[in-house]
Design a protein around this nucleic acid. Sequence first.
RNA 1: GCCACCGUGGUGAAAUUGGUAGACACGCCGGAUUCAAAAUCCGGUUCGCGAGAGUGCCGGUUCGAUUCCGGCCGGUGGUACCA
Length: 816
Amino acid sequence: MQYTPSTIEKKWQKFWSDNSSFEPSDDFSKDKKYILSMFPFPSGRLHMGHVRNYSIGDAFARYYRQQGLNVLHPIGFDSFGMPAENAAIKNGIHPKKWTYENIDYMRGELSNLGLSFSKEREFATSDPIYTKFEQGFIIDMFEKGILYRKKGFLNWCPHDQTVLANEQVIDGCCWRCDTEVVKKEMYQYYLKISEYADELLNDLKLLENGWPKQVITMQENWIGKSTGLEFDLYLDDESQKLLNGKFLKFDVFTTRPDTIYGVSYTALAPEHEIVTYMLENDLFDAETAKSIRHMKNSNSIDRQKDKQGVSLGINVLHPLTGESIPVWIANFVLMDYGSGAVMAVPAHDDRDYEFAQKYDLSVKAVIKPENAELPSDSAFTDSGVLFNSKEFDGLASNDAKQKIMDFFEAKELGKKVINFRLKDWGISRQRYWGAPIPLVHCDKCGIVPEKKENLPITLPEDAEFTGEGNPIANHPTWKNCKCPKCGGDAIRETDTMDTFVESSWYFLRYTASQATWNDKGFDKKEVDYWMNVDHYIGGIEHAILHLLYSRFFTKVLRDLGYIDNTEPFERLLTQGMVLKDGSKMSKSKGNTVDPDALIEKYGADTARLFILFAAPPTQELEWNDSAVEGAYRFLKRFYDRSANAYKCDTLPIMEHAKLGKEEKFARKKVYEALQRSIEVYAERYTFNTMVAGVMEAMNALGGQENSDVWTEGYWILTSILEPIVPHICWELSSNLFDCKNLAPQKIIDEVFAVDTISMGVSVNGKKRSEIEVGVGEENAAILALAKESVEKWIEDKEIIKEIVVPNKLVNIVVKG
RNA sequence: GCCACCGUGGUGAAAUUGGUAGACACGCCGGAUUCAAAAUCCGGUUCGCGAGAGUGCCGGUUCGAUUCCGGCCGGUGGUACCA
């Protein structure tokens, strides 16, 4: 029989489909596993990143099914979003048509991969029923004050009269018409994630055992909790006059109150109200006004990179010394952090230092290192000892921070505050292809939520996609409605929601059984059983936003009484990207590999094997066509050599002691592969080493001819490989073992027994020889043998130290 | 700019807790088979003729460092409207 993946794969895919093999059971007395790969955006075709993501998830799902657990392994589509609308603008296809055609195509691609997804729970987030439940949650959030409205700055193209996403702004200009983009302040809806900042930070502790450390660190830094001093800076009389008496003071926040005597200037964000006032009242010359506008319009990354400033020509008084301090605008000061104003201490802050150098501002050092000199050409940013700081001289930084804050509080000059870097989540999008925000604007009643029985609020089908303005707002009639409260004429909100809203609760939706599906977004009993997600697998690029929003949403839904869970994802596996020729696969670079063509040529099993074998999942994966060939050749060999095994329905039993050397070695390799696979699923997730173990076992089996050993080998190896290359394994397993071996396998200790151990011998840490010693050999005997073996390197030298690391190596330390 | 990660043969990688660097593959080289080739099978393959050197670079801790610490260089992801 020849290995023909196309026949085998179709056969088993049909079998699984006909038998509904992968639908979760509603029997909640069983132990469960919820395995989830991040769902795809239906861009049109699957790419290798998806293949990788779903191959990893499928390995877990199939493994736990073998273990007899009730496994939920669902898939769906994150189907709202900008690309659908872009396609509509470019090619005139309706976003809905584009989206659902893509979904149909990708569903077929997924099914060709033999992935063990539940079919009955599949959905797309643009399905009206999904929107219905989501809008319900949003209304609850509005009523609880978690959703609110405030003004925020957006990228605005004055020509197309439309809001632009960051990626649609290219070098400060509109991607379609090249007009210079400006920031426009508009009303938007926000979710109060900042109110959950402390909990989101503290609960990271609950994830320490299941999430990669780097993701936890990134989230900690993103939330950015800091304690510091907030105080007022008063403008001097002349400055107050200049501002027509409109402003007396502004407040600043600092995390370094210990450096307060080193303040030599202060800096405002370009959006600060004082700057806005001065701009509006022509208090700047034309050129200065222009450069301030430029700062405001540039993107947030550029603002941090290239530091720019403008002197305001006004001064404040130092709160402790009364000295006059100039006020500047600095582009790197952010309006949405703290109060949008900072005290600048160039001697002790890198950014302030760079800024002071650039604009020739004075630098005053007030902290010095304990046992060293202050650097002359940079800021000293560590903690140290205070000087030039009046009564606080001689205090250590940490001590001084406290004392100075206490001093400010006692004199009522300022107060200790906690600030977070985390900003509220703006969910408004002025776009068509998203879930409408279910609110209504009534002249009499203000902003009123839609009645839940009227949900979902769906999109108008007959919108026009021109790239100008918001298609929903432009629609002639859609926004006209009745006020849900007073029944009078009202206007619907035309903003739709950020697609991160949909992906913040889709994992809950999957827990809904058919009985729940149409009535509720999810059912608490079912959530209690299935949640949390046991293994969540997805790209590292989602380490912050998606994962943070999902954690937040889970906590909000808990506080709204829908669920009891506090964190959604128990264990997280962040996969690396798939690269070709050293860079990310992308259409523009022309370095993509089409999964369909690959499956066509070699079959799904080869694609899956290659992708799991070529690198550990967390690492970037470099594509290599000939290594794919290699994976195919291995499967072919695996298939062909199954002829060495015989049919049976239980594991062959043999007497290990009576076997020959090669036979023993083969059995050892087979069981080592099994042991490694158990470890891989439990903690390491390094499927590449698991596959290598199976390959080693196959190589070892080839060195002997005992059919019991071959059969035992196939019994175990097809079981190990089934989660990775399911089609070929089901084919072999059903032919040979009636699939009885697709179940947990036991380790047999006797196969690991050895008579001798090889130990390395080093001299001064450098390996010089190798020795064979008996198991349990005395150290003295080992040392004697070791010394003899490295005679050449130790003769005539004084031995200072002898180290024996049991079963590993001997190190002889010599002098001279 | 900031936050996080990564860097090991010609290539993808392995080395589980600081303990024999390069498992397993790809590629290449050689051999068997074949009229010949493909396919398959077997063997070799870090560099260096060698002494020896060697895990991006420089330094440190240690009997011993791919692994821990400090500094640098290069690359990747994220940076709040791409998903």
